[in-house]
Amino acid sequence: MRLSGKDILGIKELSTDEINLIIETAESFKEVLERDIKKVPTLRGKTIVNLFYEPSTRTRISFELAGKRMSADVINIAPSISSIVKGESLIDTVKNIESMNSDFIILRHSAAGAPYLISKVLKSSVINAGDGSHEHPTQALLDILTIKEKKGGTQGLDVAIIGDISHSRVARSNIYGLTKLGAKVRVSGPPTMIPWGIEKLGVKVFYKMEDALKDVDVIMMLRIQLERQEKGLFPTIREYAKLYCLTPERVKLAREDVIIMHPGPINRGVEISPEVSDGSYSVILEQVTNGLAVRMAVLYLLSGEAE
């Protein structure tokens, strides 16, 4: 069993078998991460380039560590200190990087579809580390791994995703992944943040958060981008929090053994109250740990070393 493409651009393009393969591979890498010496020689001689056009803490460090744990050479490029500020186009940038024999280009970009654009012109494997409001496949994979660990599987689970669904790549990737794996997904947020026709992806829409939370196994909170207020998608942070903040009272609507997830970074007191994010239901930090294992798995499977 192997992945069918050279790239990971979105969960939409992955088959259920491919998702399961990545999750199982990640589980075996988790064991490596618990050893005293956390380094394996799997990707020795390979070059990974982290090309992040948007700020990121978790994802960038996670990919960097994943590469280093497998003995690859990892280079980080930030637009502010590269020729991107001189106006070099994305395609020219990645072609130049590839001329130095990169094996992986990991791209975070504010424009949806940017990884698709570069994957067409590159021999290197392209991994989408988040493109605009489109997809963030490794986030969904690490979320799935976390749910599987906590719940034993995903089949038949009720999952509520709450927040700005319109602009969330995390929501889209999770909707694709979780519905493929048999979970029942609900989304909730103000109507101004629910995109047109989202039901066609097999999810149920609830405008009232309380309705969405009823008897769910998993609550996935999305970060609310504060600049959306300026665009008029909600009147004030105060009112947003009043309607959609995950408070201890609202958690009680879910199943007793509910787990609470958040891709980070958190706006404490806006979409999630501190008691909840730091509480016993929260698996937010375990998501981060699993992110490393998932990214190792993805790099490993795409490198061809698995064959």
Binding site: A112, D131, G132, H134, R172, P195, W196, G197, I198, K200
Partner: peptide, 12 residues
């Protein structure tokens, strides 16, 4: 703006 823009994450 429609189902395709929703899927692609592009502004409609």
């Amino acid at each position: 703006e429609g189902f395709v823009s929703t899927e692609l994450g592009l502004q409609g």
